[in-house]
């Protein structure tokens, strides 16, 4: 049986890679995908702890996180589509209408 630390380390690695993706990429769609990666890493942690404690509550929270990820992806991609229709760009540093 694999120890809980291994799962937590996997979650940590995926979380850090996701943070790097959000902070460094210019394309907003890839930033959204990195956010999905971060949520996924959190799910690994929750399910590992659920296994450790022998309680399914962690898995319930993972289900809620997957629900939130679906809602976030739908609304975020809708916003990206609307923005692309107005400005024809999906790059984060070209979205500077509020910058003076």
């Amino acid at each position: 049986m694999v120890s809980t630390e291994a799962y937590l380390l996997l979650g940590l690695a995926l979380f850090t890679i996701g943070v790097i993706g959000v902070l460094t990429r210019r394309n907003v769609i890839i930033m959204l995908m990195s956010i999905e990666l971060i949520l996924n890493a959190v799910n690994i942690n929750l399910i590992a702890f659920s296994r450790l404690w022998g309680d399914v509550s962690g898995q319930i929270f993972a289900i809620f996180i997957i629900t939130d990820a679906a809602a976030e992806a739908a609304v975020g991609l809708g916003i990206i589509l609307a923005f692309f229709r107005n400005r024809t760009t999906v790059l984060a540093d070209e979205m500077d209408m509020l910058k003076w």
């Binding site: 939130d68 679906a70 809602a71 976030e72 739908a74 609304v75 991609l77 809708g78 589509l81 609307a82």
Partner: peptide, 14 residues
């Protein structure tokens, strides 16, 4: 309810 709101929001946005 969150999913319903997200669905309506996505439709309105797109």
């Amino acid at each position: 309810i969150l999913l319903l709101v997200a669905m309506i929001g996505a439709v309105v946005m797109a």
